[in-house]
Write a protein that binds this DNA or RNA. Structure first.
Lengths: 404, 404
DNA sequence: GCACTTACTTCGGTGACCTTAGGAAGTGGC
DNA sequence: GCCACTTCCTAAGGTCACCGAAGTAAGTGC
């Protein structure tokens, strides 16, 4: 029934370790403070911290001011205790970044993908990962310590992905069916690989390192060629019964026009990138936005209507889920100021009274690397999320004993 | 951050006890079978079962057939080990039932509520609970054993409720603001009281005792005067950041008409009970349905359109959440066969390809007691749900040591 | 320098789990 | 009727992570 099981006591320790790490992500804290925040006893915190120190995941920093007694020893996550690589796979390119444990980018690389068949894409990813991999420093080098291990790789792509198994059920632009991408990559790379839908990578990033830190109910709407949606509900990324939740772009919002999915009146057929280009007669989104900014009434009307329709759709989403935060992301945010007035107006009028008050809207600054960083964040999220589901056993872990 | 904490080991035992109980709700099982299903070791299962036997929550039944060895001793939940009372509060009446631990109704009662002020309603509920309460059997009576304790009371009403605290933030039909209904009732009744939105009571019932048994992602849509929605996501009832999730009735689906909430084009203003009555010119829903059944073209068209609009709205819900099951409930289901053709057609065309395959639609047989039974189910759900959140401590429990 | 405060550690005890071994209660062959 | 074999369950002992209580370390302030 409920897939929750607490079997061995070792699992408790792992959960509590993750708990402490999650608190430490927020800033410098003493053992005593950690104990207060988590509700664990001081001896337990001390013991777990000792383990983390030994493993090199955490370090002692300067002491804080005393309040009339012994100074507290502040602990901090050692951001460079290890690294993670994030890869965004697109139709034509793979974009990769290496980040530290705070999702800070320390290296970047991109490669073209000549064709979209599985072996080609897998080869491109493995090559990119090898390029990004931290070089083992020469023995005795001063940098040897700083360059920690590669914990794993996160991969994001457009499509339906079964994250637990890492199998791509169906990619949006290529004809992939049930491709065990995580398995293929793990075999070649020798590190854990997590694969997920690309919007979910953005969500993971917001949840752990962005505007969604500490927010347990939020939605990320990505605006671009398609309209994507990722949700954090009750503190967990929500994926739906079959991993297919978040088909926001195929919400039916009008009578026409036909959508590539075979349906009619889909949100993304109405306000997706191609629709905007067609209606403004431009070749790129930036051109269309420039036209509107130059004062062209027709183009302005198009963006205004896009905003209004999106506002209603997001408003309905809020009515259903009552999130605390909506993040707007994706390349469409480059035209954010053109869309916002209409968006805000219809959002306000759509949302049921009372759900508005605590609702926050954030536009995420968007750049090409965001997706790749999101993929890294996806993996980091796995490291920090306490694991309560044994069927997800074998997950990567900062605290696993086997790692030592 | 994550409110999950595993502190004391006692919590583990409580979780695992709930796990075993949850399995036993599915049928008769031996200790060995329980161990296999839960992944716990046999000695652990035996020990927990011994506790449950002693507490009278579980009983040994006949032995099953041997497979060439010692016969397994089958264990069963003792449905009459205790009772629960469920109350549905409406504008004019309070409806109550007493059920056993399988949500089977063993007694029923109803009382009029002369006015909707808080003291009057509280008095009506306490009176109803006292009437339904199992009578303490005379000492030495044979029935003394069968009539177990009253574990608690569940209350459902239309409005926004903070379930954790039992405070009614806002009732739909009365002018209640921040009424600590659970606290008031617990003070008078001396048993734990859980209060929730009435649609959530239906959800709890479906989740634990109805079509949603074992389904971790589902939605219940209640059709009546208003249109309600309750969701189980990832195996948990989802309530939103502020407890306000599920405002399905205020989804914006059209340009008109005005809704009581102050918005325009709300789903429930378009297809709610009053809208149907207005458009068919009838006084009751049953009259309107009878008119349609008699062949009246206008009335048929109204129901058909109601079905189509509802189908699109539910289709969009499916696109967002990818549930495995949709339950249609509420008094509107009395006209289910009039609505279904239109509903099914638009649902099919709205739902994104791929999410349809495993989607199941169930119409719940609806009667006046369903809401009250739901409220009882709400409380029973609390008893069976493994509790991983310490901030919900003090929750009612079948296995709490303090109860012995 | 001495009282006091605060931060952390050490130590012993408890509880829940597991593994291993063993008893109980069946079936089936001879 | 006995003996091997199977299956279900219990008993005994060990491990691990937690906690509370007491002790040590390292400050401040008079």
């Amino acid at each position: 029934m409920q897939p929750v099981r607490v079997g061995s006591k070792e699992l408790i320790r792992e959960i509590n370790s993750s708990l402490l790490l999650a608190e430490l992500r927020a800033g410098l804290l003493s053992r005593t403070e950690l104990a207060k925040r988590t509700g664990l006893s001081l001896p337990t915190v001390s013991e777990i911290v000792a383990e983390l120190l030994q493993r090199g995941v955490v370090e002692e920093r300067e002491t804080a001011l005393s309040g009339g007694g012994r100074k507290p020893v502040l602990l901090a996550l050692k951001a460079d205790a290890g690294f993670v690589i994030g890869i965004k796979v697109t139709e034509t390119r793979v974009i990769g970044v290496r980040t530290d444990l705070n999702a800070g980018i320390v290296a970047r690389a991109t490669a073209a993908v000549p064709s979209d068949d599985v072996p080609t894409v897998v080869r491109a990813i493995t090559k990119l990962v090898r390029a990004l991999r931290p070089k083992p420093a020469p023995a005795g080098s001063a940098r040897a310590q700083a360059s920690g291990p590669l914990y794993g790789v996160g991969v994001g792509l457009a499509g339906v992905v079964d994250r637990a198994s890492g199998v791509v059920r169906h990619a949006t632009y290529a004809d992939w069916r049930d491709v065990d991408l995580a398995g293929l990559l793990e075999g070649k790379l020798g590190v854990p690989v997590v694969v997920d839908n690309d919007v979910n990578t953005l969500v993971a990033n917001e949840q752990w390192f962005g505007a969604g830190r500490g927010v347990s109910d939020m939605a990320v709407v990505s605006i671009g060629r398609g309209i994507g949606l990722g949700m954090v509900l009750d503190g967990r990324l929500y994926r739906g019964a079959g991993g297919g939740a978040g088909e926001f772009g195929h919400l039916k919002v009008a009578d026409g026009p036909d959508c590539a999915c075979g349906g009619r009146g889909c949100l993304e057929a109405v306000i997706g990138g191609p629709a905007i280009l067609a209606r403004t007669g431009q070749r790129t989104l930036d051109d269309a936005a420039a036209l509107a900014r130059s004062g062209d009434a027709g183009a302005r009307a198009v963006f205004d209507e896009v905003g209004r329709i999106l506002g209603t759709a997001v408003g309905n989403l809020v009515n259903l889920l009552n999130p605390k935060l909506i993040v707007l992301a994706g390349e469409g945010t480059r035209a954010a100021e053109l869309i916002r007035p209409g968006f805000d107006a219809t959002l306000r009028s759509s949302v049921f009274d009372g759900l508005q008050r605590d609702l926050e809207i954030v536009v995420d600054e968007w750049d090409d690397e965001a997706w790749a960083r999101g993929a890294a964040g996806l993996f980091l999220g796995e490291l920090f999320q306490p694991n309560l589901r044994p069927d997800e056993a074998g997950r990567p872990s900062l605290t696993a004993r086997s790692a030592s």
